[in-house]
């Protein structure tokens, strides 16, 4: 079964010199995890996303409209994702637990629908 791991994090933790050092460390961990996923033959895709400030969205409701940014109320933003192909939910959760998500963040595990 394919699962998408959606990684949500507070973005401000990567601000400032300490944040930059953290980012270097975190990127190394992500690289190691995705290399392991690839070696295990489960990785189907995955990327980091640019900060939420780069967002442009189209909203539908009374016609379409363009908006320049994310919803301000949420502090955690979607920062990246993996798509993995594993036998079952427990295997997906085992990988999700190993995502080096920062304190205050979370990983959402969603089965991918087959139409």
């Amino acid at each position: 079964m394919q699962y998408m791991l959606l990684i949500y994090e507070p973005e401000d933790i990567y601000e400032g010199p300490a944040g930059e050092a953290l980012l270097v460390d975190v990127v190394a961990k992500y690289t190691a995890l995705s290399e392991e996923m690839a070696a295990n033959g489960v990785l189907r895709g995955g990327d980091g996303l640019q900060p939420s400030a780069t967002t442009v969205k189209t909203l539908v409701g009374g016609g379409q409209s363009l908006h320049d940014g994310p919803f301000a109320e949420t502090r955690e933003h979607l920062g990246g994702y993996f798509i993995i192909d594993v036998p079952d939910l427990d295997a997906a959760l085992a990988y999700a637990r190993r995502v080096p998500v920062a304190e205050g963040g979370m990983v959402e595990v969603r089965p991918i629908a087959i139409y």
């Binding site: 079964m1 699962y3 036998p87 079952d88 939910l89 427990d90 295997a91 997906a92 085992a94 089965p111």
Partner: peptide
């Protein structure tokens, strides 16, 4: 069914 919960007794570490 939809989330793909495994029909196994979990491994010891879980």
């Amino acid at each position: 069914r939809d989330a793909g919960v495994s029909f196994e007794v979990p491994a010891r570490d879980a």
